[in-house]
């Protein structure tokens, strides 16, 4: 795990999530801005998957390999599904859905770090 990439993806997801919730509060539907934000987050997450594959291929391994792979898959699947579900409601609540998806991504990446290097657990 590259700590920098993990931190970057958590930060991007939180910023995008906050923007989504702000748009929900302002009564705005999902627009190009939020989709672009989600795209940036997804790009960082994909970079993280690639780096994880490179690191694992290089001989390192996670403390909880099964969970690590599952969280890794979840981290890149969450946003596309979230975007699809949010676009089904062209109102403020679509933005809310995307916001929840971004926050979920942040939590997934935190858990990803924990199962890569679990201390005593």
């Amino acid at each position: 795990m590259i700590d920098g990439l993990a931190a970057a993806s958590i930060a991007c997801a939180l910023v995008a999530g906050a923007a989504c919730l702000l748009q929900t509060w302002r009564d705005r539907a999902v627009g190009v801005g939020l989709l672009a934000a989600a795209g940036v987050v997804e790009a960082v997450l994909l970079a993280q998957v690639i780096s994880a594959i490179v690191i694992v291929a290089g001989g390192s391994h996670a403390d909880q390999p099964t969970n690590f792979v599952l969280y890794l898959v979840a981290s890149v699947v969450a946003l596309p599904v979230g975007v699809w579900w949010s676009l089904g409601d062209r109102s403020r609540w679509g933005s809310g859905v995307l916001g929840v998806a971004c926050l979920a991504v942040a939590i997934i990446v935190v858990r990803l770090g924990q199962v890569w290097e679990s201390t005593g657990g």
Partner: peptide
């Protein structure tokens, strides 16, 4: 619909997380 869409989202996250 409406706020219910967020509710479904949170339920879906819990469904996937709890199942896996």
């Amino acid at each position: 619909g409406g706020p219910g869409r967020i509710l479904v989202t949170v339920y879906a996250i819990f469904a996937v997380a709890a199942c896996s």
